[in-house]
Amino acid sequence: MASSPGPLPPAEITRRLQARFGEDLLEASVALGQAVVRVTPERYRELVGTLRDDAEFACDFLDFVSAVDRGEDGMEVVVQLWSTSRRHQVRVKVAAGTDEPRARSISDLYPGANWHERETWELFGIDFEGHPQLVKLLLPEQFEGHPLRKDFALTTRLAKPWPGEETTGEGPE
């Protein structure tokens, strides 16, 4: 069996990305055994492209694109990348802003991102610039609003409040 280089340690991934992106890498940490980086919107596509094309990262597989509603801090797009050859993964986060949140599309870099971005667009209302076909994927056509936003009103909950304990949303970092 041909030997392929093993996985890069998460700390090594963040170190190498920091060396390349410097100030534009707003945050780099190791969480739950994987590298997590936050990048400026300007160099988001460049970072994803680097992770895909550069042989030392070789992230050839896009696991998912999703988002987090951080309330007053705005929306955040989360991308998970995986290297099938080196067997390591990287999580990329990028701020999308508060009013009319937007992010650059990476569906030309990873065709698999197409549907993930459509889903994130309809559920969070984040506009993906450069996406070829931003139309509803899962929601019914007549559906109004973005149901995974924190300010989306669940009509059932208005009639009957949540009977259990409030979930605070605090989890392991």
Binding site: L139, P147, F152, L154, T156, R157, K160, W162
Partner: peptide, 13 residues
């Protein structure tokens, strides 16, 4: 009645 999805945005209750 919707069951565990009683407060879901997408489920018919």
């Amino acid at each position: 009645c919707g069951g565990p999805y009683w407060d879901s945005y997408s489920v018919t209750k």
